[in-house]
């Protein structure tokens, strides 16, 4: 990946982070309802904001302004979750749910911990029930990955859980669709801990992705499905031998709005950022993660002399 494309990825990611920073109040949780009535969507949005900020903090390749925004957003999200107490209350109220501990796990690499939630998660993950959740296969891997971050015993073993996913079966690559695609990207995210551990991806899956990822990237580039395309760009840089798509970054940069918002490719964004937030915060969050990991892997492979252009 040449220096121009790396700068482009950095620019897209940092512009996106600026937009998220300006729109932070849109991520705030509603406080006029009981804890358990806080919508799943708002918990999800805030947790994804925290995840993106945590990746920026972890990779430490952002410029000073972007790094400061990431740090500030992490603190904001943690406070919105009552410094973990809200997640603890949600987990205690609905012990069979897994999302509170999954959300909590995103904060752990950045050094945020909640001792009672640690104990509760450790206990719940040790129950027989932990391996009997009626999740789709890639969601089971999400819980497995969260348990690893928390330091609890993961429910199930990696290979068995992976074998249950779409990607794990390495199907005919033309059976890909948008639903399977999100399953594939998240299987990779969980197995590699969002790019922190590329070696966590079993070798046969790496070979499979090296063969077919260029096709999926090309198809979703052509259809301008930016949200999914950016997730596939992340998959490329989660591979032990990363795959970069510099020409695709040019298209992504062209599509990004001047204010940093990333369209999703499906709905027309309203002019007002606060109105655009609902349908476009997700692709903008993904742009932050994709830009950050692309820059980070490009720098590390340039140092190591590897990678595929």
């Amino acid at each position: 990946m040449d220096a121009t494309a790396v700068r482009l990825a950095q620019h897209v990611g940092e512009q996106a982070m600026d937009w998220l920073g300006r729109l932070r109040t849109s991520f705030a949780l509603h406080r006029d309802v009981p804890d358990y009535d806080i919508s799943g969507e708002s918990l999800k949005s805030l947790s994804e904001l925290a995840l993106a900020a945590a990746v920026v903090a972890r990779e430490a390749v952002a410029g000073p302004r972007c790094a400061a925004t990431a740090g500030s957003l992490l603190g904001f999200a943690w406070r919105e979750f009552d410094t973990g107490a809200l997640l603890y209350r949600l987990q205690a109220h609905t012990p069979a749910a897994t999302h509170p501990m999954e959300i909590y796990s995103y904060f752990i690499p950045a050094g945020y911990r909640h001792a009672q939630l640690d104990r509760l998660a450790d206990h719940l993950l040790s129950l027989r029930a932990a391996s009997a959740v009626e999740h789709v296969p890639n969601r089971r891997l999400a819980v497995w990955a969260a348990a690893r971050r928390i330091g609890a015993r993961p429910p199930g073993d990696r290979d068995t859980l992976t074998a249950g996913t779409w990607l794990g079966r390495m199907p005919e690559p033309w059976m890909m669709d948008a639903n399977n695609a999100y399953g594939v990207t998240h299987t990779v995210f969980h197995l590699t801990d969002w790019g922190a551990d590329p070696g966590g991806l079993p070798e046969p899956l790496c070979d499979y992705l090296h063969r077919w990822l260029p096709v999926w990237v090309e198809v979703f580039r052509e259809t301008r499905f930016w949200d999914l395309l950016l997730e596939f760009l992340i998959v490329g840089v989660c591979l032990p031998e990363p795959m970069f798509f510099p020409e695709v970054w040019e298209r992504v940069a062209e599509a990004q709005r001047p204010d940093g918002m990333m369209p999703n490719g499906l709905t027309a964004p309203p002019v007002e950022p606060e109105h655009a937030w609902l349908n476009h915060h997700h692709p903008t969050i993904v742009a932050v993660v994709a830009g950050t990991l692309t820059v980070s892997r490009a720098l590390s492979t340039a140092t190591a002399g590897g990678g595929r252009a």
């Binding site: 890909m176 063969r211 096709v215 090309e218 198809v219």
Partner: peptide
């Protein structure tokens, strides 16, 4: 061969 196979998969997806 891989390039041809990628073209085939793209055609199927389109």
């Amino acid at each position: 061969r891989l390039d041809v196979a990628r073209g085939l998969v793209r055609a199927m997806l389109r």
